[in-house]
Design a protein around this nucleic acid. Structure first.
Lengths: 179, 179
DNA sequence: GTTGAAGCGGACCAACGGTCCGCATACGTG
DNA sequence: CACGTATGCGGACCGTTGGTCCGCTTCAAC
């Protein structure tokens, strides 16, 4: 790997991260804008990341690797973690979940979370429909829902999320101890 | 309303409906294609529907008005009805839930379903977090999830949906009678 | 039949994701 | 250090799309 390539890759990721953080609508962040902000030609981005989706994914992977190194075994906590993560990176996750068309699911990060949840669900209530229920739990933290509920509702959505998890899985073992 | 305008409106809706039914990916249905298929100029579509979103929404409203005239009071049945509806109109609903960016929610059809579900949830378990739980139930029938799970999984997702509803709301009153 | 308004249609525009290739640069080799 | 070549760069360029615009047509009231 040539040094300039590595340097450019970092510059592009940094610039894209900044632009997405500042933007309100993912569509307003064009590849041209990223290239300009990174001080790089557009071709360089496409050679390094394939296409727009590839860039978003690389950025997303970088964030998730940092954020989800370890996954909590308490489902309510996990869901709230995901919720907060998506609030923090709203525009990027919004963009990613819309890209492609079954793309939110065909994705290593999603798979990992899903497998973990299937495991937890199975432990709590057996394997029946565990696969689907895990999907449903993840659907409750879809980033456009996070975005839509981020303000204005009377109750804190995160509390709702906790209640959803409790209803499905029963009270957390050790939850009383924590109170 | 002039006669030709009404005629064109119908032709456009019919053509768009047909094209979306035949398509595999919503992005492959361009406005030009709709115009050509309807035997109409592109301007006519935009004058009559505002923009692409307006056309999709009009089409969607037409379908939902037919499909959801009455809403069942049994949550599992309602969810399964929505699931089947979205399978039937996969490309259109896929397109609509991706359009805009909090757009799946700011929408009369969604609002109506949500209010109905809030009511049912409140009746079953009280008002606490009912708003969020209703959103979560609707998230479980997001059309890209429907699309993703439509085949290949061991269990029928519709069964999972029923179990989700039962877990949240308790056994349906009168459910034993139906067995 | 006449006339004003309502509506039509497709040439046109701007913006986007993605490609391409002549040129610059990094780096192993002598 | 000098050199040669493979690697990588960049921005002009392309095709496609949603959306606009305006000269012309058609409707329908009188």
């Amino acid at each position: 790997m040539r040094a300039d390539k590595a340097r450019n890759r970092e510059a592009i990721l940094a610039a894209a991260g900044r632009l997405f953080d500042e933007a309100d609508d993912p569509d307003r962040v064009s590849m041209d804008a990223v290239a300009t902000a990174a001080g790089v030609g557009k071709g360089t981005i496409f050679r390094g990341f394939g296409d727009r989706d590839g860039l978003l994914r690389a950025l997303y992977d970088q964030y998730t690797a940092r954020e989800f190194q370890t996954l909590p075994d308490a489902v309510p906590d996990l869901l709230v973690r995901i919720w907060d993560f998506k609030r923090r990176h709203r525009v990027l996750t919004l963009a990613l979940e819309r890209e492609g068309f079954a793309s939110p699911y065909r994705n290593d990060g999603y798979d990992r979370l899903h497998r973990h949840l299937v495991d937890l669900v199975t432990r709590a209530r057996g394997p029946r429909n565990a696969d689907f229920l895990a999907h449903a739990l993840l659907a409750a933290v879809r980033s456009d829902l996070v975005e839509y509920l981020k303000e204005g509702s009377e109750a804190d959505p995160r509390e709702g999320l906790r209640e959803l998890a409790r209803s499905l899985l029963g009270p957390e073992p050790g939850a009383e101890a924590a109170r």
